[in-house]
């Protein structure tokens, strides 16, 4: 089976949407999903637990150098950057913030693109800065697929707009449509 994955990034206004997406996933997804959301530095606890309530898929804040397992959802831990390593493990770091953010969506997206290449689906949701735009560019360089949430539907539209402006967004979709795309991407095994 192809080694493929989904990466999702967002900040202001994206948490509820991520909750919704997770609650509508099939029971078994057979691929890993990586989620990188900006959140308050002090809010270190309870995030994964809250998401887990609505999901039968394991939601994990990973340990540094842990092996990626299909059918898991990985959330970037608060205050850490999350990298996808070429040996199929996850790397964490507390280097400087990028785009005023740690975790940085760009770093997760870029390293995921380098590992999953054309078999990566990147999704950018509501958010208030341009983190993710460089990541989208990298995903397209490797012929992956990129989707931005319809800015009209976003609580804060800066993040998807900056990805769209960058000319590296394949589709602009509503949440309802994004959920369908995810389900299709998961079920479609090359």
């Amino acid at each position: 089976m192809t080694n493929k994955a989904i990466v999702i990034g967002g900040s202001a206004g994206s948490f509820k949407i991520v909750m919704k997406i997770i609650s509508l996933l099939p029971k078994k997804i057979d691929i890993p999903i990586f989620i990188c959301l900006h959140r308050l530095r002090s809010a270190r606890k309870g995030f994964a637990e809250t998401l887990q309530i609505n999901s039968s898929i394991k939601i994990i804040e990973p340990i540094d150098k842990e092996f990626i397992v299909a059918n898991n959802i990985y959330i970037a831990p608060a205050n850490y950057h999350m990298y996808i390593l070429q040996n199929g493990r996850i790397g964490l770091s507390i280097e400087e913030e990028l785009n005023h953010s740690r975790p940085s969506i760009d770093l997760t997206f870029i390293t995921a693109a380098e590992y999953y290449k054309e078999n990566l689906l990147g999704i950018i949701l509501s958010g208030a800065n341009d983190d993710g735009a460089n990541g989208f560019k990298k995903i397209k360089e490797y012929n992956g697929t990129t989707i931005a949430q319809d800015p009209q539907e976003c609580e804060v539209s800066v993040m998807p707009l900056s990805c769209i402006k960058n000319n590296c967004t394949d589709k602009i979709l509503t949440i309802k449509e994004i959920i369908k795309e995810i389900q299709f991407f998961i079920s479609f095994n090359i």
Binding site: K65, H81, Y83, I84, L85, Q86, G91, S93, E95, E96, L107, T111
Partner: peptide
Amino acid sequence: YSEKSFRRRMEK
């Protein structure tokens, strides 16, 4: 050193 964070140090 871990490849991705080392690369980021180099870029910086």
